[in-house]
Nucleic acid binder design. Structure first.
Lengths: 244, 244
DNA sequence: GCCAAATCAAATGTCAGACGTTTAATTGTC
DNA sequence: GACAATTAAACGTCTGACATTTGATTTGGC
């Protein structure tokens, strides 16, 4: 764990990288306490503010956490699904919003991923998840539901579908992707008239999962995907006429 | 963009969150220059080191970049696929290594995702990608290839498969997942005797893509998945006997 | 001898001021 | 007008200090 002090303009980045490598390689196990800031400063032959900047970089990636007080310090953080998930959502959201990713590209990716876990979900779904999905479908049928609430319910429905696969790695990957794409999706599903069709497809998906029918589930997901793309085309066409 | 100075222990985190929100919400567009560190310090009524810690947090997430010199400063970074990809790999790698994710879980997730883009890949693959896959297969047949090199080639092969779908969002998601799982996979594919079978499956996959045969491609991927799991069982069983 | 309160010490969080370095714009000269 | 020297703005780093938190230690009382 050494750095090159002769190549300065970024000592804090070098130190952060050195510590990160130690964590990733397992040299520093979970919950291990790092040396104090003063000790690290001495070890790397830099000042304490520089060490602190390095630690803040690691904290931003949830690699470490800090505690104040006598037995305080920086500790190696256990990476939780929840944290990784949250991180992935911000990253993916920015990625999509800053790179003019077309709706069809995002939509295609989303449904491809979702269909990937449909077979597993059909096989392993629990009654709880079916109940959750049906409850969301009921909410979505309420005409008084605002567009925002409808979209939130849509997320919850698909989240339940993904979780039904009972694979935490898959859930983490997919839930992040689905949520990140939601801002794009929202633009499409706002026209209220499309709700009935979407709800019908949701119902078909839930029922297919209930009877462990992977084939039907996949077909209905495909139908939902193509319907969503179709809607998108309509919306974009209307928008182009509106703002020439 | 204000903070609460009365609730200190983490002014830098509050400032980082405030700036991050401004970026995510689009208030600060890409390539916009943030105020100088001194100006930010004055604006938030904190010292310059505190502002710097906040900026380092954002830099760690690739949300900003900094330049020195007269027209220097912090600029809002465009989130690139490459950066998001690199970030996802470190996060996912740590997530897997720190949470005792079972091999079957990781393997299942990986192949589920990979099979998700197989239909698209079969439809859109270019000759370049087929050539790349065949080249990797040739390398994998060399008995002199080290285990590390074989695994690297394995990654390249699957990366080409994913890229053949020609969907950058899908590539970003999947390539991250595949690479993050590689350390786990490596433990399995090390026994050299399994290489021939793996190479044969790779060849079958490449040939199916070449003739745009999505069904066969999916079947061969499924076969590769089950063979990998089978190998894993063997390895783990042997290990248990070895270290009782 | 035991329990509670006061004290202490270690560590992070924050601040102020300073100096060095990089970089682009400005100025001055030929 | 082109090129070189100067200047100024900004980041990168250092030093030293004080505040705050928090667990451990010591002290005091009973």
């Amino acid at each position: 764990m050494q750095i090159d002090p002769s190549n300065p303009p970024d000592l804090s980045a070098q130190i952060a990288a050195a510590i990160r490598d130690a964590i990733v390689s397992g040299t520093l196990p979970v919950d291990e306490r790092l040396p104090s800031e003063a000790e690290l400063a001495e070890k790397f032959a830099v000042s304490r503010p520089t060490v602190r900047e390095a630690l803040k970089r690691l904290a931003a990636q949830a690699l470490i956490r800090t505690q104040r007080g006598a037995t305080g310090g920086a500790f190696v953080n256990r990476q939780t699904y929840a944290e990784a998930h949250a991180q992935q959502i911000t990253t993916a959201t920015l990625l999509l919003s800053m790179n003019e990713v077309s709706f069809v590209t995002a939509c295609e990716a989303r449904y491809a991923l979702e269909r990937a876990c449909a077979p597993l979900a059909a096989q392993r779904r629990t009654d709880d998840q079916i109940a959750l999905m049906l409850a969301e479908i009921s909410r979505q049928q309420d005409p008084a539901l605002t567009d925002e609430a409808f979209c939130a319910s849509d997320i919850a429905f698909h989240r339940a579908l993904v979780d039904a696969a009972h694979n935490p790695v898959l859930s983490y990957q997919l839930a992040g992707a689905v949520e990140a794409m939601q801002p794009l999706m929202n633009m499409i599903t706002y026209p209220a008239r499309s709700r009935a069709r979407i709800v019908a497809l949701h119902r078909a998906i839930a029922e297919a999962l209930e009877v462990h029918d992977a084939t039907t589930c996949d077909a209905e997901l495909a139908a939902l995907a193509s319907y969503t793309e179709e809607l998108a085309e309509t919306v974009f066409a209307a928008r182009q006429v509106q703002t020439p």
